[in-house]
Design a binder for these strands. Structure first.
Lengths: 145, 145
DNA sequence: ATAATTGCAAACACTTTGCACCTGT
DNA sequence: ACAGGTGCAAAGTGTTTGCAATTAT
């Protein structure tokens, strides 16, 4: 979580982008496009390098995209009491919304998995895909019609 | 789960490979290499196409790899009572072992997430990364030394 | 016979690298 | 001044595609 290094305009822009889009996960290409559209054109390599660095600093989470072809990034919230490294994330395959599983049940789950299955979860890079209620309802409708 | 289509030697070989390695997830390249080493050399395109088809037929699960750069495949178990599409999977980032979270707690989790968070999980393509006890112990030792 | 599948080669998408130049401290 | 960051161009992976030849049914 140390913030070594220089705060360049590019780094600032990338953090801006993630911050504006904090409610969803973005691919590197999404970030690139956003920067392009906001007069902050930045080189690919820089975007990749910066995202990488932000992840290793713990400021950003890196998830695999559901199709497995690229990584998705999201600003980590680090409020004491709601650290993104301490709860699971659900991502809706329909609308892209990310739900922070930030509730008492998490510690139960963690404890169960640790004690019964001998496994300690890494919340920082795990994500569960599925459908939120809205999108599930929509999918049903489509099927019906 | 229908099994339309021809059973070619290539398809058989790929299923063989997944079946022999059923306890871990394999990337397309892993499969390719395995086929190479077992006198069943098969073209890249065929491997990708076949894996794709197996996934859509429900015989194989596709997970994102932890680094997000490629997909991992694993034969789905479809025993009644232990269907891989109905429980979560944990993968150890250390040794690669996959743990099937096949226990009563799963329905609790599913129910909680549905009722409290309005989200229905897709077990077929979600995977949780972390460390199994053995690897966690090893990691600790390393740190200490 | 014929519909599905394969191999090949070329294309694509995403990410990383080396290096000379530029910038924040 | 100088460590650290950036852009560029080239290379590396992983994956997909079109098409003619081959194979399972």
């Amino acid at each position: 979580m140390r913030s070594e290094g220089y705060m360049t305009s590019q780094r600032k822009a990338i953090i801006d982008c993630l911050s504006v889009n904090e409610s969803s996960t973005l691919t590197a290409s999404d970030v690139l496009r956003w920067l392009d559209c906001h007069d902050k054109k930045t080189d690919r390599a820089t975007v990749y390098r910066t995202l990488e660095r932000l992840v290793s600093e713990g400021l950003v989470l890196r998830f695999p995209s559901s199709d497995g072809h690229s990584s998705c990034f999201q600003l980590a919230c680090a409020d004491p009491g709601s650290d993104c490294h301490e709860h699971l994330h659900l991502k809706c395959s329909g609308c892209g919304k990310v739900i922070h599983l930030d509730c008492e049940f998490m510690s139960e789950l963690e404890h169960h998995i640790q004690s019964k299955h001998g496994f300690s979860m890494n919340f920082g890079n795990s994500i569960i895909y599925g459908l939120c209620d809205d999108c599930a309802r929509l999918a049903l409708k489509k099927k019906g019609s």
